[in-house]
């Protein structure tokens, strides 16, 4: 009986520990981030069980040639070339796969209309490595994004 009681006590404490563990570490990605070139700010949000990042601010929102807000003029689908960049979801379909990594998603580069496979790694709570690549992770480039605090 004593042994059984001890066993249940251990089980109880284990359950307490696991129930305090956040059930979705992936939500740490949610927030506003700035790529290293400082030209845009990206807001990451969760829709369903996946993470998406959209442009919420552009340093140069107006196209100097057309003098209207910048649009996705390099999109390979001609019918989508008038979609405005503000609000555009650059990061799509990321799933948290543990170990501070978000995978299975893509990143879109409006500068050339290309979509790349992408791996997001959280280096610390305020720093992301965003690696866009083609095929192999070696054939790509990493950009460092910083979390932004919003002034009220």
């Amino acid at each position: 009986m004593k042994t059984t009681a001890k066993l249940f006590s251990v089980l109880f404490f284990l359950m307490l520990i696991f129930s305090f563990t956040p059930d979705d570490d992936g939500d740490r990605l949610v927030g506003v981030w700035a790529p290293s070139n400082g030209k845009a700010r990206i807001k990451v949000e969760k829709i369903g069980n996946k993470y998406y990042g959209k442009i919420v601010w552009l340093r140069e929102p107006i196209d100097p040639v057309t003098q209207i807000p910048k649009v996705d003029k390099n999109n390979p689908d001609a019918s989508m070339q008038n979609v405005p960049l503000k609000g555009y979801r650059l990061l799509k379909d990321f799933i948290y796969s543990g170990k501070n990594e978000w995978t299975e998603g893509t990143i879109y580069d409006p500068e050339n209309g290309s979509t790349y496979s992408c791996l997001i790694t959280m280096k610390d709570n305020n720093t992301l490595d965003i690696r866009g690549y083609i095929g192999l992770k070696a054939l790509g480039r990493t950009d460092v994004w910083k979390r932004l605090e919003l002034k009220k």
Partner: peptide, 13 residues
């Protein structure tokens, strides 16, 4: 402007 997307838990947006 408006943009319309479709997405599910197991497919790309």
């Amino acid at each position: 402007d408006f943009s319309l997307q479709l997405v599910s838990n197991t497919s790309e947006m």
